[in-house]
Design a protein around this nucleic acid. Sequence first.
DNA 1: GTGGTCTAGACCACG
DNA 2: GTGGTCTAGACCACC
Lengths: 123, 123, 123, 123
Amino acid sequence: MAKIDSRDKRPIYQQIIDRVILLISTGVLTAGEKMPSIRNLAQELGVNANTVARAYAELEHKGIIETVAKSGTFVKDTNVSQEVYSNAKQEIREFVNKYAQMGIARQELEALMQEALENVANN
Amino acid sequence: MAKIDSRDKRPIYQQIIDRVILLISTGVLTAGEKMPSIRNLAQELGVNANTVARAYAELEHKGIIETVAKSGTFVKDTNVSQEVYSNAKQEIREFVNKYAQMGIARQELEALMQEALENVANN
Amino acid sequence: MAKIDSRDKRPIYQQIIDRVILLISTGVLTAGEKMPSIRNLAQELGVNANTVARAYAELEHKGIIETVAKSGTFVKDTNVSQEVYSNAKQEIREFVNKYAQMGIARQELEALMQEALENVANN
Amino acid sequence: MAKIDSRDKRPIYQQIIDRVILLISTGVLTAGEKMPSIRNLAQELGVNANTVARAYAELEHKGIIETVAKSGTFVKDTNVSQEVYSNAKQEIREFVNKYAQMGIARQELEALMQEALENVANN
DNA sequence: GTGGTCTAGACCACG
DNA sequence: GTGGTCTAGACCACC
């Protein structure tokens, strides 16, 4: 679960949100399962507890997790992967449309994508 | 040119930069053409003159426009595609990083990109 | 007696208190009757014994039950309706205060109450 | 606007939320109007800026106000009274049902309500 | 000046 | 131990 990237432009709490959604969408976290406690996760990630609390609050607000008073936080909704996937689809389409409209050739875009994939593969 | 969206998540100065680059790359603005003055553009867009000044400064720094003392600002005889290209590079990298970190497999990302490219190719 | 709802916003000890009062006020528990032991009730409800102990302590403090050393806890010969009545009084006051502060006119509040009463009368 | 009640059971941020909703539903704040800045309101109420920020964030999330990047926060939706009204309806129904089930006569409930209304009328 | 994010640390009720 | 709330204070980008 420990994956905070300080170079990432997204705020930390958003990275946590996205990460939790990922773990659910890939089946690592399953419905009903207990989430790590706010303080534990904060320590594990090396961030402040308030930051994790904010992430959990927003996840609860989205109906993805559920906090049961003082006993912990649990995964609620597992049907989340579709949303992630369709978000990615939407974003990449907008990207391609934008730069195609600005005159970048398809081959160039493809090359850029390949390069980006290579870079990430080395993590 | 009047296209500032206060709901846009990009800062205003960035919206101006992007818009100028778009107008150049699509041939609406051509090399040597005179740009509107900072004050005029600020008034037209309904934004602070400092904001337009910052946009012009960054455009000049990128070598896309040129300020000639006492006569105004002009589109430079430059190939803006380099700038567009490097922006695209940056964006696609962030996209890949984000979804890779969220656990989408490289193959899936590649498939999404191919699909987006196919759709655009048919335009 | 097994009726603890972890989703309920009330703390568990309060749920127990309310439940006991309900059982007495509806005649399920009668004066002099022996209450389940703290440990037994805790096990039956699946909650911590301390939680049940706190509920019993408050019930005793309210004069609703009575602990007799070495023999157990008993429903006291008391009129629980007084407690219920004062709770209702408190709750309705908070309700009226809240919505009056939020600007709902007195007449509207009265109409809402009348409507609610009508609906229940038909049970 | 200065109305934080430390004896109120609701958390401070909730009091601010309710108060803003009140001010909108009573027409004191109208659509498009600028809200006080987070820091100003915090100072006026004598609370921490983060607390006001949280209230504003939840109000924005409910679609009641809107923050326009770095220029301020504005009232968005004025159709808030209906929601308040239906909340009140729901709450009073639950109240009546609960105490009717516990054996309080309809007349008694009615008397309690009248009394509560009288008390508030004197504000 | 504005809002956004984050930290460190505190206190609370509850279990 | 859990989450909820709050404070004080910091830094940031933007206008």
